[in-house]
Nucleic acid binder design. Structure first.
Length: 778
DNA sequence: GTCATGGCAACATCA
DNA sequence: TTGCCATGAC
């Protein structure tokens, strides 16, 4: 059998057509689990095997790094690592950055421009609003940031917006937009939305650039097309070219192939429009549409549930997903009293499944709506000793110490980066306080120079204390010293240098605060991350350079990764290494938000927190459009499951401190009752307590036999009860989060009674207000 | 200028 | 519950 035949083997009719289609634009409407990644990767392989396309001519765009990594892996399996490396398989943002690094100088940006994430851009907006003397109550910087993000997604620049601004709000917004953009440009920085918008501008303003990339990418594929926003749509259109455009005459349009499913559109909040997929045939004349309706992933039970839910959305094109897998096992339902109980149920169930040996932890995933919900699961997983991995959530790169060091690195890569510069100005403390910073800012504004330049001219800043002037001088001297150490050093060496010379590390190691110990560990890990990056990066570059000599001067001897490369990786690939490692023995259970779950599949899925107010989220309840997006999110969640699906909810859930009583999610009601086997159909606590506390709802956990099930969360409501346990020194207690401990000290009386409890070497001693702490006397 | 304290608001979802 | 900011003592 030829390799071409092998590529087509086992494909169903529509899949076969999608893989072999040539010529005009192609839309593949791929229902959940219909094998779209298979089609995409086989199409790529087919292009090369049957049609002589070179890997360098292919651009495959995905939405997440996870998806990009998976696709690269599969291509690598089909075609070998070299072919995979010389193809562009990446997210919109990464692809745009790569183009921008080469071309942004045309628009006055340095090629090593800094990428601001949401936190950085929020900070910059804060500075802008302060500069404009705006009342933060009337004009919240956050809302400005969000609105500007939306405008950029629609490719509306500040001048255009200023023209149509009517209200005072809009006028101020237009002004802030303009100033924000100016500050970004001066700082040599772009925010996430700029990455797309500026690339589009570039392609529009410089036809030769558009031509260059159109010549290079003769085949463009876009995954998750239903999640593209307007800016991304225009980017694709510009890149591919359309027959009717005059400037495409030189190079004929490239072959475009997009894949998507309107039912899985879950990113409207960041500007995605289903319009792009619905109007594809109008946008791209001569387009062909192929439907993939056979599902290979799930049992019919799971599909029926998902179909029943998604059918509630109005005005969607009908789709007929079907499976040959048979009914399978009924969906398991569980109503917990509270979120601890829910987590205990999930963990207990996983424990049983893995005990039989029928399931390994890596085959199991737990989904929730918001990241905040992961904490309880984490607690219980730790306590039960079950291995797990949280995808997303409180990210490594969002920790204070990491961001501080990152800010140093960014300033070294780009000295004009104001946001980062101001972050490190007085970190660690060096006597440049708010007062001095303000004087510098004022001076910079008056002289119309950047903050970085103002620093260099401290002597001229009026009303500056001599002490501050000296402190600033020392600071700039430090920066110069660090900068001198950059050439010839690898990213990890630079990180180590920064840690040492700034005194950041020694400040932490000398500190007595226990938190600072883990900060030091995180920084050590950060150095490892840098080293790891150097290793993988060099390997990748060498491969690529070997394969495409014509593309730029990226020869092998230049394969050393630069600081800019490293920073870019961190900004764009925040979830590196977060994909569960399927190769590891048994592996770990994966915990993630529903949004992260898109595109993945697991034999066993727990869909948790199915409560109105949690999922669907509180803020969507009043808005039909948003509610429909939540329903699509539910559809995505349900269709991730292959064989076993669990749905659960908690009757009571504490939301920042106080308990909230949520009714069952409407999505739960939309699943046909005949498909669900309710393991526990009702909570002990049905609704908000009238006058009585719900402390009476205590039971043992009933799972795993450990007795640490953590079902005592309802003690959080004891504000209305009086039953605080009376403790004395030496008592053995059980704490919801910390487990078993012994009372060391009791002081105070009545409501103010405090206890000090020792939880053993791992956790140490903790102080509690007995009345409020989730403690039980044993 | 730095540190400690207390009030107040935030938890969407991602690159 | 956490994290940010304003406030006030040193």
């Amino acid at each position: 059998m030829s390799s071409q035949e092998q590529l087509l083997e086992g494909l169903n009719g529509p899949q076969h057509e999608a893989v072999t289609h040539g010529g005009g634009p192609l839309l593949i409407v791929a229902g959940a689990g219909s094998g779209k990644t298979r089609v995409l990767t086989h199409r790529i392989a087919y292009l090369m095997a049957a049609r002589g396309v070179r890997p360098g001519e292919i651009l495959a765009i995905t939405f997440t790094n996870k998806a990009a990594a998976e696709m690269r892996e599969r291509i690598s399996a089909l075609l070998g690592a070299r072919a995979a490396a010389s193809m562009w398989t990446m997210t919109f943002h990464s692809a745009c950055v790569r183009i921008l690094r080469r071309e942004a100088h045309r628009l006055g940006y340095p090629s090593g421009f800094t990428i601001y994430d949401s936190a950085d851009s929020a900070r910059l907006m804060q500075l802008v609003c302060k500069e404009m003397d705006l009342d933060p109550k009337r004009f919240p910087p956050k809302s400005f940031s969000a609105q500007i993000s939306n405008l950029k997604n629609e490719l509306v620049d500040y001048d255009t917006f200023a023209e149509q601004a009517q209200t005072e709000q809009e006028k101020k917004l237009a002004e802030a937009y303009k100033l924000y953009q100016r500050r970004l440009h001066e700082a040599g920085a772009m925010d996430f939305d700029d990455l797309i918008m500026v690339t589009v501008n570039l392609l529009q303003m410089f036809p030769d650039v558009a031509e260059h990339y159109r010549r290079r990418f003769r085949h463009v594929m876009v995954d998750e097309y239903q999640d593209t926003n307007h800016a991304q749509y225009v980017f694709i259109r510009r890149l591919v070219g359309v027959e009717s455009d005059p400037d495409t005459a030189v190079v004929p349009p490239s072959e475009l192939c997009v894949v998507g499913d309107a039912d899985q559109s879950i990113y409207a909040f960041r500007g995605a429009t289903i319009r792009n997929i619905l109007e594809f045939e109008r946008d791209f004349p001569n387009a062909r549409t192929i439907l993939l309706e056979q599902n290979y992933r799930s049992t019919q039970t799971i599909l029926s549930a998902a179909n029943a839910v998604i059918e509630r959305n109005e005005g969607r094109p009908a789709k007929n997903l079907w499976s040959e897998q048979g009914q399978g096992t009924p969906i398991v339902g569980y109503v917990a009293d509270n979120e601890h109980d829910e987590a205990a149920f999930v963990v207990g169930e996983i424990d049983q499944l893995t005990d039989d040996g029928s399931i390994t932890p890596s085959q199991v995933a737990v989904f929730y709506r918001t990241n905040a919900q992961s904490r309880v699961f984490e607690d219980v997983f730790i306590r039960m000793g079950l291995p797990y991995k949280i995808v997303g959530g409180v990210r490594f790169y969002e920790r204070k110490e990491i961001r501080d060091i990152l800010a140093y690195l960014r300033v070294l890569a780009n000295p004009e980066d104001t946001v980062s510069l101001r972050r490190i100005l007085n970190v660690p403390k060096r006597g440049i306080g708010a007062r001095a910073e303000e004087s510098l800012e004022l001076f910079a504004a008056r002289e119309r120079i950047t903050f970085a330049r103002a620093l260099r001219r401290v002597d001229e800043v009026p009303a500056m204390a001599t002490r501050s002037v000296n402190a600033v001088r020392n600071f700039t001297a430090l920066l110069d010293e660090l900068a001198a150490g950059v050439p010839g050093s690898t990213p990890s060496q630079i990180v180590e240098m920064v840690l040492a010379k700034t005194g950041y590390l020694s400040e932490l190691t000398e500190s007595k605060d226990i938190q600072d110990e883990s900060r030091v560990e995180n920084l050590e890990e950060f150095v490892d991350v840098a080293r790891e990056f150097e290793n993988t990066f060099s390997a990748l570059l060498e491969d690529e350079a070997a394969l495409e000599g014509e593309e730029g001067p990226g020869t092998v001897e230049e394969a050393e990764p630069t600081l800019v490369d490293f920073l870019e990786r961190i900004s764009l690939v925040a979830d590196t290494d977060q994909l569960p490692d399927a190769d590891a023995e048994g592996g770990v259970v994966t915990l993630m938000t529903l949004h992260s779950a898109k595109g993945l599949e697991f034999p066993v899925v727990f869909l948790t927190g199915l409560e109105d107010g949690v999922f669907p989220h509180m803020r969507t309840l009043g808005d039909k459009t948003q509610l429909e997006e939540e329903r699509r999110l539910a559809y995505v969640g349900l269709t991730r499951a292959e064989r076993l699906l669990y749905v659960s909810r908690a009757a009571v859930r504490s939301a920042w401190g106080s308990p909230s009583y949520n009714p069952a999610s409407r999505f739960l009601d939309e699943i046909p009752p005949s498909l669900v086997d309710w393991r526990r159909g009702e909570a002990t606590v049905l609704s908000a307590p009238p006058g009585r506390g719900i402390g009476g709802a205590r039971r043992g956990s009933g799972f795993g036999g450990e007795g640490f099930g953590g079902t005592f969360g309802s003690r959080k409501t004891t504000a209305r009860t009086t039953e605080a346990p009376s403790l004395s020194v030496g008592d053995l207690v059980n704490h919801d989060s910390f487990g078993m401990g012994r009372v060391q000290l009791v002081e105070g009386s009545g409501d103010k009674t405090k206890a000090r409890v020792d939880f053993g070497a791992d956790i140490g001693e903790k102080d509690f207000l007995v009345k409020y702490a989730p403690i039980e006397k044993l």
